[in-house]
């Protein structure tokens, strides 16, 4: 049976992915920090901070949704303590329909599974830190269907995109646009 905190995480991130402008104030501490592979090249300390981190997650999720026909998330391990919740989630992305992460064309019947390890830390009932890790190269290699040379070419194509994004931060943290206004 899913715990109250686990449900809180699920509903919070559903709200983040939906672009709910109230979610940051209600569910995250003002000094919230996000450390993950995507944030690594986007700020001097490798982490995204405060509401900007939430906007980034919204943008990342929209990027995935815009490239895959279906993305499913499933909890496969969950452990909880007083102040922390640790999860392993399996992400299954399928039916790619656009260029993605340096790959020009992925087979339309492709299905890629990735196990993502996430540690959430809580303070005063709100999320104050998220640490996130997965086998990023493995994800590329899976999209290249095991062909490491193809994965290497995609990584080289991906480089200018990441460098442009990094440059947009002008030496500071890359800033993401505010959520769309509520209708």
């Amino acid at each position: 049976m899913q715990s109250a905190r686990s449900r809180f995480i699920d509903t919070t991130y559903e709200r983040v992915h939906a672009g709910d402008p109230d979610v940051f104030a209600e569910c995250f501490t003002p000094d919230f920090t996000y450390h993950g592979p995507e944030s690594k090249m986007m700020s001097p300390d490798g982490a995204l901070h405060g509401e900007n981190a939430i906007r980034a997650m919204y943008a990342f999720n929209n990027g995935d949704k815009g490239s895959w026909g279906k993305v499913e998330r499933e909890i496969i391990v969950e452990v909880e303590t007083k102040d922390r919740l640790f999860r392993v989630m399996r992400w299954t992305a399928q039916k790619p329909y656009k260029a993605y992460a340096g790959f020009d064309k992925l087979p339309p019947d492709m299905k890629v599974k990735t196990e993502v390890f996430i540690l959430y830390t809580f303070r005063d009932g709100k999320i104050c830190d998220e640490f996130f890790a997965y086998d990023t190269l493995g994800y590329f290699i899976d999209m290249a269907q095991g062909d490491m040379k193809k994965a290497a070419a995609a990584l080289s194509n991906f480089a200018p995109m990441m460098e442009n994004q990094k440059a947009s931060g002008a030496g500071g943290e890359v800033q993401f646009p505010a959520f769309p206004a509520k209708k």
Binding site: P37, K40, V88, L137, S156, A159, M162
Partner: peptide, 19 residues
């Protein structure tokens, strides 16, 4: 069972040069 950001590891060893 373990995981880490393998791509960042490689990019860091390459001194940030993704190519």
């Amino acid at each position: 069972f373990w995981a880490y950001d393998t791509m960042s590891f490689l990019v860091d060893i390459a001194g940030g040069d993704m190519k």
